[in-house]
Design a protein around this nucleic acid. Structure first.
Lengths: 199, 199
DNA sequence: GTCTATACTATGATAGAC
DNA sequence: GTCTATCATAGTATAGAC
């Protein structure tokens, strides 16, 4: 009997171990600062072994970013929700993020590096922002349809602001965790915004 | 006659040339991605020559960050202004930033890297955020004293939010300049905030 | 103050045995 | 699929002549 999934399953587990390790390393040292040798060592295989699974460093980063997005599939149902509910969902995302500093840090470090055109994460970051903006803007528009928000609001601009606020507070929080209360400060923004947008 | 300032002046010009070049390189490639050899070449001296002026890479980065802060001494008089004036001054800072993408990018790239403790820019970033927060919060409090803003507002939280908004929009703008209108979107935030904070 | 030369270390990637 | 061995390259930093 051929154990159809055996080889695959082993390979997949290996792959995931590598991805999880690489995520930590990229989060800690950025793309340029991370080293394949160290990732391999921490993942329990040789550097050549690692490169058997991911042909080069750039492809590994892309895979890690996709992997992070998968872990992030807990979108907290922003897509499903609309109006005030969506804003509260965003606040819950921030709260959740405060419990996974590693994932947040990966995002902050890579986003920072990726502002440079030519960085392997540049396209990923651009796509990510565009998608996020669309998702949040759509949720705001649904709030208008439901009469929760006043008509004529600039959904895209508010979406940009909500995303900027999340990212900006994350940076401050990562750099100075004791001093910056990311969750409460963002919650305050959402509360003010709900009041402002009331019809 | 001893030309007291001659040697110094020459040295200072050289130093500044190096700093300006290094600023561009660090902005383009981050701390880890920048290379002393390339900085030296673009500044028109050898790598060893560069290291004569700045003993090592880390000290060069620190010097560049201080240099940037000097160029930034055009604080647009946020300290002097208070209340609504201060918020308008912040909007002017954003407008100004939109004309110096190089400086903005240096800040974004280094801030991103510097969330990692142990990064040579970590302390600089933390100090910078703390100072900024104090400056902006003080300006908001002055607005309360003057009766422009309602009493009991959380000045620190609003300061954190204003700074987060500036930084977050900068990242989006750098990654996708055609799509993100940093200046207008920030102006919108300030306008909403002035309305919200009215007594 | 600036250069050349060089030491030293680390990196990403490939070839080929098992 | 994993390893060892190796390559080519590039990086920071130092020594010492001019």
């Amino acid at each position: 009997m051929r154990r159809v999934r055996r080889g695959y399953a082993t390979g997949a587990a290996r792959r995931e171990r590598i991805l999880a390790t690489a995520l930590l390393e990229f989060a800690e040292h950025g793309y340029r600062g991370a080293s394949l040798a160290r990732i391999a060592e921490r993942a329990g295989l040789s550097q050549a072994g690692l490169l058997h699974h991911f042909r080069n460093k750039e492809l590994l980063l892309i895979a890690v970013l996709d992997y992070r997005d998968e872990l992030d599939a807990r979108t907290f149902d922003i897509e499903g929700a609309g109006g005030v509910d969506a804003l509260r969902a965003l606040a819950r995302v921030v709260e959740h993020n405060s419990r996974v500093p590693g994932l947040v840090q990966l995002f902050s470090v890579i986003s920072g590096e990726a502002v440079t055109p030519g960085h392997p994460g540049h396209d990923w970051a651009r796509r990510r922002y565009r998608r996020l903006r669309e998702t949040v803007a759509a949720a705001l528009r649904r709030g208008v349809e439901r009469g929760e928000f006043r008509a004529g609001l600039d959904a895209e601009a508010h979406a940009d602001r909500l995303i900027a606020m999340m990212d900006g507070l994350q940076t401050q929080w990562l750099i100075d965790p004791e001093r910056v209360d990311m969750v409460t400060v963002f919650q305050g923004y959402v509360d003010d915004l709900i009041a402002t947008l009331r019809p």
